Amino acid sequence: MLALKDVTIETRQPILNNFSFNFQLQKTYGLIAPNGSGKTTLFRSIMQLIPSTKGMYTIDKKPISTQLKRVFYFETSNWFDGNLSGWDYLLFVKSLWKSSVDVQKLVQDWQMSEYVKLPIKKYSLGMKQRLLIALYEVSDAKYLLMDEITNGLDEKNREKVFSKIRQLVDSGKMILISSHYKEDLETVCDYELFLENNTMVVKEV
């Protein structure tokens, strides 16, 4: 269980005020908020990339700072080093997260065989997004934080992502996925979290 207790986040402006919630395995949570309201800031705070003003994040009652290998978060394809290949990233994540996932199978599943060993600077946005999703799979982490994961994907691949999310959750994972489009998440989520005006409202779907 990923637990947030009395979390308050402020950057240049207030983002979230005194929020507590328990994220359970085998559940999908949709974080819905307008652009600029703090979705990414919340993800960064969970991952200890920025401090929260107050509050605590734990996994199974242990500080999340000691449990980060049980979580996977890759904020955006803009994080990729264009001189490296998708293959480099897949092998790196597999090694660092000590995963047993078959990388070659993932490459075939996401139809990356023709380009995965090329430098990422040659990739289109859609190619980068498929690689990004494959990194979540290859990590095999129990807790997956996905920030606007369907950006740049065509309808066919968006549907494939949502199908994959269902499979991952059924296999025992927890997924927190953000979007500013409510309709994107309604069919895949067990809970919807609405962030606006520093307040989080949770609704069971």
Rank of each mutant, 00 (worst) to 15 (best):
E155I: 05
L84N: 01
D184V: 03
D154L: 07
T66R: 13
V161H: 06
S124G: 03
I175A: 07
M1F: 10
V107F: 01
S124P: 05
D154H: 06
L2V: 04
V103P: 07
V169A: 09
Y143S: 08
K98F: 09
Y136I: 02
S163N: 12
T66L: 13
I15G: 11
E114S: 14
F74I: 08
L193Q: 07
R44T: 00
F194E: 06
E10A: 13
D140P: 05
Q13N: 15
Q129V: 03
I32H: 09
R12L: 14
G30T: 05
L195A: 03
S178A: 07
I165K: 09
L84V: 02
S37I: 12
L176F: 03
I64S: 08
T41R: 08
N22P: 07
L96I: 10
E155A: 12
T150H: 14
W79P: 00
D190G: 08
V7Q: 11
D184A: 03
M47P: 02
K160V: 03
D60S: 11
G172E: 11
V188D: 14
K203W: 10
I149N: 09
V103H: 09
D147K: 08
L4I: 14
V7P: 12
V169P: 11
E204F: 05
Q48E: 13
Q108W: 08
G86T: 02
Y29W: 07
L68K: 14
A134K: 00
C189A: 15
R44L: 04
F19P: 09
D147C: 10
E204P: 11
K5I: 01
L176H: 05
P14L: 14
N198L: 03
Y191S: 07
F72K: 05
F21G: 05
I32W: 09
E192W: 10
T187R: 13
I175L: 13
K203N: 11
Y115V: 00
Y29M: 06
L144P: 01
H180T: 02
L91T: 11
G82T: 00
N22Y: 14
M200H: 03
N151M: 00
E186T: 11
K98L: 12
G38S: 02
N22S: 15
L118Y: 00
S124W: 00
V71G: 08
F21P: 06
I59P: 04
K61S: 15
M112E: 00
E148H: 06
V202K: 13
M56H: 15
V205T: 13
E196P: 04
H180Q: 11
V169H: 11
L106N: 10
S85V: 00
